[in-house]
Amino acid sequence: MTVQVTASTGGIPHNKIMAFGLVGSLVCLYLTYLNQYLSVEYAAFFGGLAAVFALIWGTDTIKHLCSYGIGTGVPSAGMIAFGSGAIAMLLATATQFNSMFLSPIMAVVFGAIIGGVAGWLANSVMRMNIPVMVRSLTEMAIIGAIVLMGFTAVMAGGFGFEALSAREFALFGSLAIKNFEFTVLGGCLVAVSFMLGAIALQHPFNACLGPGEKQDRTLMLAAECGFLSMIPVAVISFAFVGIGAAVLSLIVAVVGWYYTYARYIELSKRDAFAWLDAKPILEPKGED
């Protein structure tokens, strides 16, 4: 016997959340280009905010997809989102697109194509026949690509191929050598972003599912997961960006995480049947 997946209905409509998430994350990804434009690194933290916007949107998408009774499929949904998103992200960060400031838009385009194909395969070839499958997988591949790009921007200060795969070391003052091993791609830090994003994407709905699921609590948890994932990413960024930019990313992550975590606990307190400390099991009295 498996757990029945039940989700609340009503609340903010999905299309509105999708618009909010898509526009918010694209704006934040474009703000990271300030680094390139102004030759600074302080705008790196906008990548983390882009990830938070995308994760809020993705949580609502997963909720819609999994309300079709995919019980144990909730964590898998996060994995397929980032599996397809990783391909879209790598294609979109190609130098041709990045030099024209097109990478965020191309991530959406490639994500839509890959996700659409994955959804079509799931529905038509594997015959899952879930009405929202194609749309949901399309959205989730886009979300995966955006979150990966956002975390990469926090780590490396940008998502251009140069930022991802080359790092300059100062040797004896003016002499500098380029190193390709100790970089975001060379160290395979995409694996870290992948797991951080995939678990953060599936966790909010997976943790809150049940008859008493409330949209505001689930989405607050999504924001919390986004900021929490940003903390290790910001710590890793100490190796790649200047200390000022890395500290700024870390402060944004910690403050955002603390606020959303506290709000999430408040909302859980609001929704819980009772909030007890060191009390025994209270056998249910039943509804009648």
């Binding site: 909010p204 943790a207 809150c208 599912l209 049940g210 008859p211 008493g212 699921e213 609590r217 689930t218 948890l221 999430y264 606990i265 909302l267 859980s268 929704d271 819980a272 049947f273």
Partner: peptide, 9 residues
Amino acid sequence: LGRTASLAK
């Protein structure tokens, strides 16, 4: 917290 709060019913 999430799972338990959703079991309030």
